[in-house]
């Protein structure tokens, strides 16, 4: 690969948006070319810097206003007409969703996982035990569950462990491990494998959240987050390496 081509694909390489072949070509080139290596280092440093830029969460009053708007829309006159439409849309939507023909067990559990994830974020109940130390988080589950979830810190891979809590998915208690990726939360739900093949290795996007399932050492893992699917894939492979 020429320096010119590398320069043009450097950003996509950094963002993990290149296919495997081009990615390897860039990596090989950078290894032997000091100039391009310097370019890459500069970009990496910049990316790190920019990711420290402020994240502006929605103010509580805005959240409250949107909620009021969606539940009691007639408080604002101009919304009245839209509200009627929305109610119609919502009831049609509700009817359709009840009507959905195939709801396999895998889909139901995937939905339940996303619900638990959303609940943990909305109710601000992310942790029962808040610690970045796997040796604190793992023993915390002792006596609270009839299994011992494997807990690894993946900080060195860009996914620091931040805590854990008890949660319920699909009608049984599970261990929820909480990781962070920049400003995003990744929930990992761990429970003993049940031999149910309908959820096996599901990779999906539900309501804007990415979701991955895997089985390892007799345990079933669900990772769910709003990080992009490439990052979640990287997380899953890092978690499975250990």
């Amino acid at each position: 690969m020429s320096c010119e081509l590398v320069e043009r694909t450097l950003d996509a390489y950094l963002d993990r948006e290149l296919d495997a072949e081009s990615s390897t070509a860039v990596r090989d080139h950078v290894r032997v070319c000091a100039a391009c290596r310097g370019q890459l280092a500069g970009r990496e440093a910049l990316t790190k810097l920019v990711r420290g830029a402020p994240y502006y969460p929605a103010p509580d009053r805005l959240r409250a206003r949107v909620l009021t708007q969606s539940t009691r829309p007639n408080s604002v006159r101009r919304v009245l007409g839209w509200a009627a439409a929305a109610v119609l849309v919502l009831s049609v939507g509700a009817a359709l969703s009840l009507w959905r023909p195939e709801t396999s067990r895998g889909n139901v559990i995937a939905d339940a996982v996303v619900d638990s994830h959303v609940r943990s974020l909305m109710a601000n109940h992310l942790f029962d035990v808040q610690s970045t130390d796997q040796h604190t988080v793992k023993p915390w589950f002792l006596g609270k569950l009839d299994f011992s979830p494997p807990v690894v810190d993946l900080a060195s891979r860009g996914f620091p462990l931040v805590g854990g809590r008890l949660d319920y998915v699909g009608g049984r208690p599970v261990a929820a491990l909480v990781y962070q990726r920049q400003k995003h939360t990744i929930n990992v739900f761990v429970s003993p494998e049940t031999g149910d093949s309908s959820t096996r290795d599901i990779v999906r996007t539900i309501r804007g959240f990415n979701l991955r399932h895997w089985i390892r050492d007799g345990m079933s893992f669900w990772a769910v987050s709003d990080v992009n699917s490439a990052d979640l894939a990287a997380f899953a492979s890092a978690a499975q390496e250990r």
């Binding site: 502006y56 805005l62 969606s70 919502l90 959303v118 309501r207 804007g208 959240f209 709003d226």
Partner: peptide
Amino acid sequence: MFEQTVLPHLDAAFNYARWLTRNDA
């Protein structure tokens, strides 16, 4: 339905809007 689908992304929406407008209000 609406609340469940949209509200979890309100932070993302506000952050994006805040950077577009550069102004809280």
